[in-house]
Amino acid sequence: MTNGMVFALIGAALAALMAGIGSAKGVGLVGEAAAGVVSVDPSKFSKVLILQLLPGTQGLYGLLTAIILLSRVGIIGGTPAELTTAQGLAFLAAACPIAIVGLISAIFQGKTAAAGVGITAKKPEHNGKGIIMAAMVETYAILALLISILMIYNIAV
């Protein structure tokens, strides 16, 4: 295995790992707040569940990026490519946007969604507003995912 391949694999691992950690933190925080509401009013379970799901998407974006990267370098469904160090570093750089933005945005989205749980608890009819506020944070994770995918597809192997 070349040094290039090692860097590419580090990139794939970071994408899945960091975005996954962010999502776990975000989902955990909202889950904590949601449990508080459900302990008082179990009928609000479905409404708070939507909010809890929101910070989970970054983990999926990280996973998607890692799979695409692994497939591009031939680890999945092909023969592993003989990557140069420069190519490997390029793949590592390509994984960085979703790894870093995924981690940070999932945590912040979790905070916003947990605050949204408070809206649902007090005024369930305004649940949508809490969802919209939390979804705004998602924009930046999507932009990072887009950049990561564009970079991965445009690195010559």
Binding site: L29, E32, A33, A34, A35, G36, V37, S39, V40, D41, K44, K111, A114, V117, G118, A121, K122
Partner: peptide, 17 residues
């Protein structure tokens, strides 16, 4: 910073009463 998330959410639900 996110301390007492569960407690605060539960309290917000209790405020309705």
């Amino acid at each position: 910073m996110t301390k007492y998330a569960k407690a605060v959410a539960a309290i917000k639900a209790m405020e309705n009463y």
